[in-house]
């Protein structure tokens, strides 16, 4: 088996968890079978001394499947 890993950055106005979920959901539109996400980096965008956005850089992993030619 071979897995592939891609790097994504999710951005949420609410939380780190939401940022991860948004990134995984968006990738899941075209990639099936994402089975793990490793959080690489978390940062916050600040405006007027308040957190405006959470930016979470993740590595998402999925199994590479062979496709049979029909």
């Amino acid at each position: 088996m071979v897995e592939k890993t891609i790097e994504l950055t999710g951005i949420s106005a609410n939380s780190v968890e939401d940022a991860v979920q948004l990134a995984i959901s968006r990738a899941g539109v075209t990639i099936k079978g994402i089975n793990a996400a490793h959080v690489e980096d978390i940062s916050a965008i600040i405006e007027n001394n308040r957190v405006l956005r959470w930016r979470v850089r993740i590595k998402a992993t999925f199994l590479v499947k062979d496709e049979l030619h029909e």
Binding site: A13, L22, S25, R26, V29, T30
Partner: peptide, 21 residues
Amino acid sequence: NQIIEHHRCREDEMLDLVRGK
């Protein structure tokens, strides 16, 4: 189904922005 998912994700992104504001 991809197109349905695409719009669901886009809607989630928008709702994330208007959660507290």
